[in-house]
Simulated scan of single mutants.
Amino acid sequence: MINALSFLMNQSFTLYNSMLQSGIYPDKHTLLYLVQASQCISEAKQIHCHAVVAGLLSYGYLQNSLIKMYLENGLVGLAYQVFWHMPVLDAVSFNIMIVGYAKRGYSLEALELFREMVGLGLEPDEFTIVGLLVSCEQLGNARLGKSVHAWIEQRKSISSSNLILGNALLDMYVKCKKLESARRIFDALVEKDIISWNTMIAGYAKVGELDLAHTFFDHMPRRNLFSWNSLISGYSQKGDYMMVMSLFNSMVLNNVRPDSVTMAILVHAAAEIGGLEQGKLIHSLVVRMQMKVDAFLGSALIDTSRKPKMEK
């Protein structure tokens, strides 16, 4: 019954509490469904405590769900406690921890867990490698990233031409500013998606290689808001206000609605040329579009008002 109600979050926990009041105690499968249905960390902790008291925490699926829940909510210490006390550590558990650590910025810890995983004779898969590559890019360690790449190429079971791994390698090389290596990965991909194209555009735009960024932009099969923002941002950093506005107008004509990031980029471009009037015009656009002014856009608008006008 709770399984059937797992998508109805409140009902699941109401039924769970009714079971306890009636002296009916859920089994490990019920607790697993409840963790997956929990809406807040306090509910997950309640199930965790119940599992400990009832002696059900040794159930691997339940432990992995708790680890994932804790990591997603930033409770890294609790996640590690559950992981460390697992009677049997498998590749799935290591992957959840490695990827979770990487996403939370615990790059060195993710790398150490990988060493432990290999030391136990467990076979890493593409999800393990994605976690490692995220850690490498966060550390800005291209040399380590290349070592991971070389390790992938030596494994017959894992291929860098795989789209998930290929995109992770692209992102790592781009974040480490190794655009030539990123280009080789991109060219070798059998299948490319919009993430592949956007990663290359953003990478070239960020280092000022705007001709290459624009070439990729022109040749990509389809574009989204991120594609436009990346290219516009590149020209804004260069101080090319005319190109920024030209791209913005093309974006609107292509029925792509700008967001606060787009408008902040435009404001920044106006500020770079000391264009107070241009900044006011962009501000009026923000108002007309009824766009929410977040901290990023708000600080850009304030910065524009402080910039001195350029002398004619």
Rank of each mutant, 00 (worst) to 15 (best):
S230W: 00
S299W: 06
G60N: 15
Q290I: 10
E109C: 03
Q138E: 00
D211R: 04
G140M: 04
M69E: 12
A142K: 03
I232Y: 02
S181Y: 11
V118C: 06
I129E: 11
H214F: 08
V53A: 09
E153W: 01
Q237R: 12
A271F: 00
L163M: 15
E126S: 15
Y70I: 12
I302L: 11
I98G: 06
A182W: 02
M19K: 04
K280Q: 10
I98C: 04
A142L: 03
G77D: 15
Y106S: 13
G77F: 08
D193A: 02
I185S: 05
Q36N: 14
L189C: 05
M289G: 09
D259I: 10
L5W: 06
L231N: 03
I2K: 07
Q237H: 15
K45M: 05
I273G: 00
C176M: 06
L108T: 06
F127W: 14
I152N: 04
F296D: 06
G105M: 06
R115N: 11
T199M: 11
M220F: 02
M200D: 07
Y61E: 12
C49R: 00
G239Y: 02
I194L: 10
P124F: 09
L132I: 12
L189I: 07
D218M: 12
L189H: 05
R183T: 11
F296A: 06
S22C: 03
S135M: 08
L56I: 09
E137P: 02
F13P: 14
L89W: 15
D218I: 07
M291K: 11
Q278R: 12
L132G: 13
S22R: 04
V256H: 13
S12D: 05
G121S: 10
A202F: 12
V267W: 03
V244A: 12
F7I: 07
I201G: 08
L210R: 01
E116N: 12
L32P: 00
Y241V: 13
A264F: 00
Q237T: 08
L210F: 03
L62N: 14
I302K: 12
N229K: 00
N229Q: 01
N73G: 06
N255F: 14
R183I: 01
K309W: 02
S227I: 10
M9L: 03
I152L: 02
M242T: 08
K68A: 10
E311L: 09
A300C: 04
L113Q: 07
G274M: 08
I47A: 13
L247R: 11
G77H: 13
Y25Q: 11
F226H: 07
L89K: 15
L163W: 03
N167D: 11
L15W: 09
M200V: 06
D240C: 05
E311N: 13
L15R: 12
L75R: 14
N255I: 14
T262G: 05
K156A: 13
T128I: 04
I96S: 05
P87W: 08
I282C: 09
P124I: 08
E311Y: 08
I265L: 00
S250G: 14
M97P: 15
V267K: 02
Q278V: 15
E43K: 04
M19Q: 03
C40G: 14
N64H: 07
K68Y: 03
M291A: 13
V261A: 11
D259H: 06
L301H: 10
V35W: 12
F216L: 15
N255E: 15
A188W: 01
L266H: 04
L212E: 13
